[in-house]
């Protein structure tokens, strides 16, 4: 079976690639494109470390085939900062010490960005429910939630 020829857009850049049917979007990002910011925690949809957006919709890249990215716009953690300028969420995560080992962090940031695009002024409860699929073994979540709320506040006044 020939490989699938996939035309996709990642963080605004048009990308062409070849993949096997069995490769997930996560496999393609990490192993083919060396975009290793997107993490693999469980590979079964439970942890959210692999979060990306597809046409603006937050999904687990471990639960989507690479070939399904054909014609879609993918957003990954590598698209958050502009050059050396961190995204406000990234800045607030540093200020609030909202990460320890950092494995969950790219997924949490991508998910939080998707939330704030939909809802710039979320309540703490809304943040917690939205991020329920992003597991963190280190921080206890509190600093994550505070950093997201603070970033939302800053982004609203920007």
């Amino acid at each position: 079976m020939a490989k699938h020829h996939v035309h996709t857009t990642i963080n605004g850049d048009p990308i062409e690639l070849l993949c096997d049917t069995g490769e997930t979007l996560l496999d393609v990002l990490r192993n083919q494109l060396n975009m290793t910011g997107t993490k693999e925690g469980c590979s079964t949809g439970d942890c959210g470390a692999c979060s990306v957006t597809v046409d603006g919709r937050l999904v687990c890249s471990c639960l989507m085939l690479g070939v399904e990215a054909n014609g879609k716009k993918i957003g990954t953690i590598e698209g958050l900062a502009s050059g050396d300028a961190l995204h406000p969420l990234q800045q607030k995560f540093l200020e609030h010490a909202a990460l320890q080992c950092g494995v969950c962090t790219p997924g949490v940031l991508v998910a939080s960005k998707a939330l704030l695009e939909k809802n710039p002024d979320p309540t703490e409860t809304e943040v917690r429910y939205w991020l329920a699929g992003n597991l963190c073994r280190c921080t206890g979540y509190d600093k994550i939630v505070r950093a997201v709320m603070d970033a939302a506040k800053e982004m609203r006044s920007a």
């Binding site: 949809g45 597809v54 999904v59 639960l63 998910a111 991020l131």
Partner: peptide
């Protein structure tokens, strides 16, 4: 059903 991510699919 599942998380925000799962509901997206």
């Amino acid at each position: 059903i599942g998380s925000t991510q799962v509901q997206g699919r």
